[in-house]
């Protein structure tokens, strides 16, 4: 796996714990949503050191209520056709004002990267072959958009109004 963030390949500064791994005293770690729901009362950690890996079946209202506790939320794309995490990310950004990292994990496709980015996902776990296949170019395939999303890009209706 390779991590893309800010449209470049970066090292992953987070440790991803299994549910049986002990929680280290310090350092940035991610834990599963299931573990969080069980241990949340005992976890006292600065936001910047806690990340949650959420399945795409958890409703946005439930995640949103807990988003304040963490600095990273990893959303899941179990297969290319399952687009629930697009809504999760968008709602986290637009309705809950989540400003930490939202990371796409699972079966992340090159041709979905720009959609993901528009929904507020800003980090992407992609396969190694992304490096040889110029996946970074996928972020700029479109520079015009027909609708507002969770990013700050202008959309066509606004651009038209501005011009008129």
């Amino acid at each position: 796996m390779v991590l893309i963030k800010g449209r470049q390949v970066v090292a992953d500064s987070w440790r991803h714990l299994d549910d049986s791994d002990p929680l280290p005293a310090t350092g940035a770690v991610t834990i599963s949503w299931e573990r969080w729901t069980v241990e949340r009362g005992t976890i006292a950690r600065p936001r910047a050191q806690l990340g949650l890996r959420i399945p795409n079946t958890v409703t946005t209202a439930v995640i949103g209520a807990d988003a304040d506790h963490c600095g990273l939320i990893a959303v899941a794309f179990p297969n290319f056709g399952d687009g629930r995490a697009f809504s999760q990310a968008r709602v986290l950004r637009s309705q809950y004002g989540f400003r930490g990292e939202i990371r796409a994990t699972g079966n992340v496709l090159r041709d979905q990267l720009q959609f993901m980015e528009r929904c507020g996902i800003d980090a992407f776990e992609v396969p190694e072959r992304a490096l040889t296949e110029d996946w970074l170019a996928a972020f700029s395939e479109f520079d015009l958009f027909y609708q507002p999303a969770a990013d700050s890009r202008p959309w066509i209706a606004r651009q038209r109004a501005g011009r008129n």
Partner: peptide, 13 residues
């Protein structure tokens, strides 16, 4: 049509 075209959130329903 315009709003739904390549809607980033609703392209994988």
């Amino acid at each position: 049509r315009q709003w739904s075209t390549l809607h980033p959130e609703f392209s994988w329903l």
